[in-house]
Simulated assay, not measured.
Amino acid sequence: MLRFLTFLLIILIATSADAQQWYRGNLHTHSYWSDGDDFPEMIVDWYKTHDYDFIALSDHNVLAEGEFWKLLPDTEEAQQGFEAYHNKFGEDWVVYQTNSEDRTEVRLKTLKEYRPKFEKKGEFLIIQSEEITDGFDNKPIHMNATNVQELIEPQSGSSITEVMQNNINQVREQRKQTGQPMFPHINHPNFGWAITVDDMLPLTGERFFEVYNGHPLVNNYGDDERLGTEAIWDILISNYLAEDKPLIYGLAVDDAHNYHNYDGEHSNPGRGWVMVQANELTPEAIINAMEVGNFYSSTGVALKSITYDDQTLSVEVESENSINYQIQFWGTKQGAGREEMGTLLNEESGTKASYQLKDDDLYVRAKIVSNKLQQNPFQEGDTEVAWTQPVSN
Rank of each mutant, 00 (worst) to 15 (best):
N99V: 04
D53E: 08
D51M: 01
E77M: 08
G90A: 07
K121R: 14
I55F: 12
S129P: 00
E65I: 02
K117D: 13
G90H: 09
E65G: 09
I43M: 12
H28Q: 12
D59A: 10
Q21V: 00
Q128H: 02
E113A: 15
S100P: 00
S31R: 12
G25L: 10
N99G: 06
E113C: 09
T104S: 02
Q128F: 02
V106L: 02
K88L: 13
E83S: 08
L57W: 06
D51S: 14
W33H: 10
S34A: 13
D92I: 00
E65P: 00
G81P: 06
D38T: 08
E76L: 11
E105R: 11
H50D: 08
L71R: 14
F89D: 02
A84Y: 10
F68G: 00
A19M: 12
G36M: 13
V94F: 06
G81R: 13
E91A: 03
Q21S: 15
L71M: 11
I127G: 01
S58I: 01
K112N: 12
Y47N: 04
V95R: 14
G66F: 12
Y114D: 05
H50T: 07
L27P: 01
Q20K: 15
D74T: 10
A19T: 14
M42T: 15
A64C: 09
Y47R: 05
H30T: 06
K109L: 13
Q128L: 01
K48T: 01
F124K: 09
H30F: 10
L72I: 06
L27E: 03
F118A: 10
E113Y: 14
T110G: 12
W93F: 13
N61V: 09
K120H: 09
F68T: 02
E65C: 02
Q80V: 05
F89K: 04
T110Y: 09
G36D: 08
Y96Q: 03
S100K: 11
A64T: 08
G81F: 05
M42N: 14
V106N: 04
Q20L: 13
H50I: 02
F89M: 02
F68P: 00
Y47D: 10
Y47C: 10
S31D: 07
L125G: 10
A64S: 13
S58E: 10
A56G: 03
N99W: 05
V95T: 14
